[in-house]
Amino acid sequence: MSMQLDFSAKRVLVTGSTMGIGRAAAEGFHELGATVAINGRSAKSVAKTIAEMGGGERLIAAPGDLSKVAEIHKVVPAAIAALGGLDILVNNAGRGDEALIDDIDEAHWQSMLALNLKGAFFTIQACLPALKESKGNIVNVASMLGVMGGPAGNIVYSTTKGAMVNMTREMALGLARDGVRVNNLCPGWTDTPMIQNENMLSGDDALYKYIDAECPMGRIGEVRETTGAILYLSSANAGYTTGSTLVADGGLSSGH
């Protein structure tokens, strides 16, 4: 059996793919032959991403705000039509706003749940007919904070990610006999533009130093390492893997 990854002729939708983990995953699929639909809230940044990835007919623009169900019902069918079907959905769009427990208000709660959880659920629902037809699969990008508690300020974030981890189990069972696999990837600290920016604001590389000290492997994860996990879960090599939660966190959720 070959571990060689090949996504030729595969049709992939990666939500939130104009930057960070989603962007890297989209690039990974694209390099390995897939046709990829790029999604982000802004049509401009989607177009820019596609241009930076070299353009061509294997890149599809699918801009839209997936925190709104009505918009999901427009964006997702259009993306699937442009791709000519769907083999892989990577549910990656999400936000990580922080709030201490006394400061959590309805607006914070609703915005976090709308994108991280409700958006993910209804995106899956909208993709299911196509995925059942292709015997495709879904990778939900949760977080290590879906399997453990987080630092202060992350109650709502970890609630949405814990719910996503369990949503994956539930859906994996419900879709197992349709031949549709559903798995979780839970990244830990990953060197995305978001973290790079936070590190810069922290001054003197304080965030990087904190991560290096806290993480058992002594370093932040690279984006390409997250991509590797997403490509694996969505490949035929993971053909018997469903409902699983893969943590790519340098060992942090095992204890630190």
């Binding site: 904070l145 987080g150 630092p151 719910a163 369990n166 949503m167």
Partner: peptide, 30 residues
């Protein structure tokens, strides 16, 4: 149903309960 998948008509129930399980951890820490 917050811990393991279950009946195919209680998806949203399981999602809420999975959320509650992990909310417990972060709330406990904070």
């Amino acid at each position: 149903s917050g811990l393991v998948g279950g009946p195919s008509d209680s998806h949203v129930y399981a999602i809420t309960k999975g959320g509650l399980v992990n909310m417990t951890r972060s709330m406990a820490l904070e």
